[in-house]
């Protein structure tokens, strides 16, 4: 038996040596890593360095280029955060973000689950394929295209308003009314995402052991009981994982949709954190203030995502990374 301390030292040195040997033997593997790391550093990590703008009075012309200007701008501490947390606009956009994404989770979350369960019940393979394909296709449309489609359908002289007038109602301004705007966001989100999410649940349903259904049938379970006692418990881990992820991303989803759909008439109900960051930063050129709000958003989102992942790892032994 040797003394454990030198042994540890030797093994440490040996690991390092082994690592270097591996690099020397497989130089191509390490060369391959370069392009990815290069883009990662420039487009993902360099912006992180830029976050200090939130603590400086940033002037874009202070240095020789916009990133150089960061170090040349004076520190102001937490001035922009104090200003931010005191502003009425901050609580408004935070509230809107939570309400809109909360509504989406509460109303839309069960829809693809039910859709997948129903798709699994369809007997005709061909009709099942037709249904699945049709429900799935809107996922590949961009938000601008969906905006165009619904603008055409729900606009003042769109088909729906023609029908409403025919039935004796008055025209509804879906895009500019504060009463309908959030509903419009939730509906179009469901329109786009239901098929995509249903495919995920359908894959989980297909993975359920078919002997469980046979056993349930032998025990005299009818279709409802089979769905309730076999299908739903079978997909429950996937359901919980998806729910955790959705809640984890409650602050940072739906930005592009809002940016495209909203207009000044509905800012009170539709303006979310990211759209406000965008208008503040690239519209009003209030770069430091916008970065401060962006940083707040990133930190909270980070905590939520890591928390959600840890939770799913602990409870379900599954994680996204």
């Amino acid at each position: 038996m040797t003394n454990p301390i030198p042994r540890k030292k030797i093994s440490l040195r040996r690991t390092l040596h082994n690592k270097l040997v591996h690099i020397a033997r497989h130089p191509l593997l390490y060369l391959m890593l370069i392009p990815g790391l290069f883009f990662l550093c420039i487009y993902k990590f360099w912006p992180l360095y830029g976050l200090q703008m939130a603590f400086r009075k940033y002037s874009i012309y202070a240095g020789s280029n916009p990133m150089d200007s960061i170090a040349k701008s004076p520190w102001v501490g937490t001035k922009y955060f104090v200003k931010l947390f005191r502003s009425a606009q901050f609580s408004l956009v935070l509230k809107n973000t939570l309400i809109i994404n909360g509504m989406k989770i509460i109303i839309l979350f069960p829809v693809p689950i039910i859709t997948a369960i129903m798709l699994n019940e369809i007997r005709s393979a061909m009709y099942k394929k037709v249904l699945q394909t049709t429900i799935y296709i809107p996922y590949f449309f961009s938000w601008v295209m969906i905006f165009g489609i619904f603008y055409s359908l729900l606009g003042s002289y769109g088909m729906l308003n023609t029908l409403i007038v025919k039935l004796g109602g008055t025209r509804i301004r879906f895009f500019t009314s504060t009463e309908t705007f959030r509903g419009l966001l939730v509906f179009t989100e469901g329109w786009r995402e239901t098929g995509y999410n249903a495919v995920i649940y359908l894959a989980a349903i297909v993975g359920i052991d078919t002997t469980l259904y046979e056993a349930a049938k032998v025990d005299g379970a009818n279709k409802w009981q089979q769905i309730w006692h076999v299908t739903i418990p079978g997909i429950l881990p996937t359901v919980v994982l998806m729910l955790i992820l959705k809640v984890g991303h409650i602050l940072d989803t739906g930005f592009e949709q809002v940016l495209i759909f909203y207009n000044p008439a509905v800012y009170d109900v539709g303006d979310v954190i990211q759209t406000y960051v965008y208008r503040l930063g690239l519209g009003k050129m209030d770069f430091s203030q916008a970065t401060a709000l962006g940083l707040f958003n990133s930190v909270v989102a980070f905590v939520l995502i890591v928390g959600a992942n840890t939770l799913s790892h602990k409870t379900l032994h599954r994680s996204i990374w």
Binding site: P47, M53, I70, V277, L282
Partner: peptide
């Protein structure tokens, strides 16, 4: 990093 720092890059 957020919108503004990404734009500056």
């Amino acid at each position: 990093g957020g919108i503004v720092p990404a734009y500056m890059v």
